[in-house]
Design a protein around this nucleic acid. Structure first.
Lengths: 205, 205
DNA sequence: ATACTATTAGTACCTGGTTATAATAGCTGA
DNA sequence: TCAGCTATTATAACCAGGTACTAATAGTAT
């Protein structure tokens, strides 16, 4: 094994290749050939062994991940899945904390996502054509972690009649633990409730 | 002009092509050929005229945008573009209200987007490794419309020292008009500010 | 010597295009 | 009516960046 010192042993080359691709996924096999000082076939065999897809596949994967219609618009229309809705009375929604909702360093959910779930629910529970948040007084009781499922429960406290403001209280839980509490005041259009029945609210935008 | 009704006039085809690619950037010319009922050459001429790059270029652009090491984190994590940041003192961010942020029926921005901008800024302005929103007291002064540009200004009111809580006031404007006001209480890790100098904060995720 | 691994080489083929050239259809203005 | 124009389609050469397969070579271990 008088391996010419020029070239690394296979294992080390694999590691180097891994890291080269990792910190520049846009590198071609040609370039790798030059940097690793081995033939292009070797580079390709190495990729095969390591299960690293070709340049175009890598780009496609990155593009797809960033395109994912849910992910790219993390704050879409309604945040969370509304699983129960009694208009002008109460509602429940579920929201799972995913990668895109957390501080990457700590895995703790950004406050505005937790707020968004509560706000969406508070607006959805108001049985009116137009409902807008006027004020909110909120408290993040404890931080919510990546992977946890947030259950938000909303109760209309007053203003369920035809008045122009409604008060809604929303509490969010992970398991039994309360993680968020908020008092919302919601403007409503004019007490002209749109009769839509007690649907799941998915089409109430 | 007894154009066989099968095919659309050029202008409409261009529009259709635009929207087809827009809501599926991964479509090939082959598929477009089938959907538009014209030859692949026509599809390519159309792309040329419209300045739409080929599939691979589109994927590459998407991949690059999502990969850009500086931009990718702030883009996903912070809502709004931070244009000025004086740590522990003040900050300004811009956020344009787009289709995906409004109630489709009314064109009015959903409250949680306006909140998200303010919350992001309030957290960003705190010069600490970990900063979390504890409580917030917010008021939506007037509704924000589709297309309007929200300018959020944050000022640290107290707690800029090493204390474990900081108070931040954020006001958002459209032009001269105040549209949102919020008082945030932000938890900070332990008063161990990371010295980064007065940078623009782009690398503070 | 034999078998085995690592490396290199070469060829055919693939996708999803670009570029250039040409042919065709259909209408338009003089 | 006919030249000229636009829109469309066809054809062929070429490209990047690969995959898949076959084969040759060098060195090493048994």
């Amino acid at each position: 094994m008088v391996r010419t010192i020029e070239r690394l042993p296979k294992k080390q080359r694999h590691q180097l290749l891994q890291s080269l691709i990792e910190d520049n996924p846009f590198i071609t096999d040609q370039e790798l050939t030059r940097q690793l000082k081995v033939s292009i076939q070797t580079v390709r065999l190495d990729r095969l062994e390591l299960g690293i897809p070709e340049l175009r596949e890598r780009m496609k994967l990155m593009a797809e991940r960033s395109y994912d219609p849910v992910r790219s618009l993390p704050l879409h229309e309604v945040i969370g899945d509304i699983v129960d809705l009694q208009l002008d009375h109460s509602g429940i929604s579920l929201f799972e904390i995913k990668e895109e909702h957390v501080f990457s360093r700590t895995g703790i959910a950004r406050g505005h996502h937790v707020f968004a779930q509560a706000n969406s629910l508070a607006v959805a529970v108001i049985n009116d054509e137009i409902a807008l948040t006027a004020t909110a007084d909120i408290r993040f009781v404890r931080s919510v972690q990546l992977g946890e499922k947030c259950i938000a429960k909303a109760y209309v406290r007053s203003g369920s009649g035809g008045r122009s403001k409604a008060k809604v209280e929303v509490c969010s839980y992970v398991g039994d633990e309360m993680v968020f509490q908020g008092h919302f005041v919601i403007y409503r259009s004019a007490g002209e409730p749109v009769i839509e029945g007690g649907m799941d609210g998915a089409d109430r935008n």
